[in-house]
């Protein structure tokens, strides 16, 4: 209940700041940046695992949101709208950058050295799993990244992706199966397994 109250307050503040920006006071955008910088940089980080690039992508997302603020009608929560703007910005940038690091492509890695990642420490293994997500086809990558970013909230993830919840669940299921196979191909094993 308290968390919902905080969210409502933040949403009110965002709506008020957005209205001030649209009304001709660009300094009101600072409040939006202060409240959302952590989330936008965090989301960008999950899409690229590179701090400098994440900040650059988040900055671009803020600029695009600033330009598009006049189009925010309050039909969805401000956070949902802003996350959608950021997601589109990140997708577009990732498309420009091309496929993620070629060395993460399991087929190429395994062609040289099967089971390359076997025997990693737990933290390294988890990080390898997160990086492997970036090699998935975009529709599965986006679903998985946002689902865990939103702490496994299917409804919010579906709203941001503009998908039906059933479609999102199908993407999550297919994406996780694909990720599991890729991780196995890379030689990633659960802790304690031979």
């Amino acid at each position: 209940m308290a968390a919902k109250g905080r969210m409502d307050n933040a949403n009110d503040e965002d709506a008020a700041d957005a209205a001030r920006v649209v009304g001709g006071d660009p300094s009101a955008f600072d409040g939006i940046v202060q409240r959302w910088q952590q989330r936008l940089v965090g989301l960008a980080w999950r899409f690229c695992r590179d701090r400098a690039l994440a900040e650059d992508m988040a900055q671009e997302a803020f600029v695009k949101a600033y330009r598009a603020l006049a189009g925010f009608r309050g039909e969805s929560a401000f956070g949902t709208w802003l996350t959608s703007v950021a997601l589109n910005t990140y997708r577009s940038r990732l498309r420009q950058l091309g496929p993620p690091l070629a060395t993460l492509d399991p087929a190429r890695v395994l062609a040289r050295e099967p089971g390359l990642l076997r025997g990693l420490e737990e933290g390294q293994r988890d990080e390898a799993v997160r990086r492997a997500v970036l090699t998935l086809p975009p529709r599965y990558r986006d679903a998985i990244v946002l689902y865990y970013f939103h702490e496994m909230d299917v409804a919010e993830t579906a709203r941001v992706l503009d998908l039906a919840e059933g479609t999102l669940k199908a993407h999550l299921h297919r994406g996780r199966e694909l990720l599991k196979r890729r991780c196995e191909t890379l030689g990633l094993r659960p802790e304690g397994a031979a």
């Binding site: 952590q38 940089v41 980080w45 799993v129 865990y148």
Partner: peptide
């Protein structure tokens, strides 16, 4: 295992 790895992703601060 995948769930655990993906849930445990620590956010970075700007």
């Amino acid at each position: 295992d995948l769930d655990r790895a993906l849930r445990g992703d620590e956010p970075i601060a700007p």
